[in-house]
Computed example of a mutant assay.
Amino acid sequence: MARGWEADPSPLFERRLGKSAEELGNSDGNDECPDIWQLDNGDVAVIGRDLTGVYGARLPQGVHLAPDERLVVIPGNMLSAAKKDIADA
């Protein structure tokens, strides 16, 4: 059965949405930096903590994770900072 959407692994990172983790105070300057990026095909890449194992068993009714999907968590202030960069539907 074909999926309605499939991630394309070929696009490149085009622009950060919002501010960097360092600008928001969400980084100590090491490699653990959450981020949100728009890819050059319009898709969005989110870098965050993989909490699939924690939240996987308690997803809301009707929400499912495919075997190749991961649930990631980012700081709320990071998404709020990206709001101005995200087009309205």
Results as ranks from 00 to 15, higher is better:
residue 1 M to F: 08
residue 2 A to P: 15
residue 3 R to N: 13
residue 3 R to G: 05
residue 4 G to T: 12
residue 5 W to Y: 10
residue 6 E to L: 13
residue 7 A to W: 14
residue 7 A to H: 09
residue 8 D to E: 12
residue 9 P to H: 15
residue 10 S to D: 14
residue 11 P to A: 08
residue 11 P to K: 12
residue 12 L to W: 00
residue 14 E to T: 01
residue 14 E to C: 01
residue 14 E to A: 12
residue 15 R to W: 07
residue 15 R to M: 12
residue 17 L to G: 06
residue 17 L to N: 08
residue 19 K to C: 05
residue 19 K to H: 09
residue 20 S to N: 05
residue 20 S to C: 09
residue 20 S to W: 15
residue 21 A to H: 02
residue 21 A to N: 01
residue 23 E to V: 12
residue 24 L to G: 07
residue 26 N to R: 06
residue 27 S to R: 12
residue 29 G to Y: 08
residue 30 N to T: 15
residue 31 D to W: 14
residue 32 E to S: 10
residue 33 C to P: 03
residue 33 C to E: 11
residue 33 C to M: 09
residue 35 D to F: 01
residue 35 D to P: 02
residue 35 D to L: 00
residue 36 I to R: 06
residue 37 W to G: 03
residue 38 Q to K: 12
residue 40 D to A: 09
residue 42 G to T: 00
residue 43 D to V: 00
residue 44 V to N: 01
residue 45 A to W: 05
residue 47 I to Y: 14
residue 48 G to N: 05
residue 48 G to M: 05
residue 49 R to Y: 12
residue 52 T to R: 09
residue 54 V to G: 07
residue 55 Y to P: 02
residue 55 Y to K: 08
residue 56 G to Y: 11
residue 56 G to W: 06
residue 57 A to T: 13
residue 58 R to V: 06
residue 61 Q to S: 12
residue 62 G to T: 01
residue 62 G to L: 03
residue 64 H to M: 10
residue 64 H to D: 00
residue 65 L to N: 02
residue 65 L to P: 09
residue 65 L to C: 11
residue 67 P to W: 02
residue 68 D to W: 11
residue 68 D to L: 05
residue 68 D to F: 11
residue 69 E to D: 14
residue 71 L to P: 02
residue 71 L to I: 13
residue 72 V to S: 08
residue 73 V to N: 07
residue 73 V to F: 02
residue 78 M to W: 03
residue 78 M to P: 04
residue 79 L to T: 02
residue 80 S to R: 08
residue 81 A to G: 04
residue 82 A to K: 10
residue 83 K to A: 13
residue 83 K to H: 03
residue 83 K to C: 05
residue 84 K to S: 10
residue 84 K to C: 04
residue 85 D to S: 15
residue 86 I to Y: 03
residue 86 I to P: 09
residue 87 A to E: 12
residue 87 A to M: 09
residue 88 D to G: 13
residue 88 D to M: 13
residue 89 A to F: 11
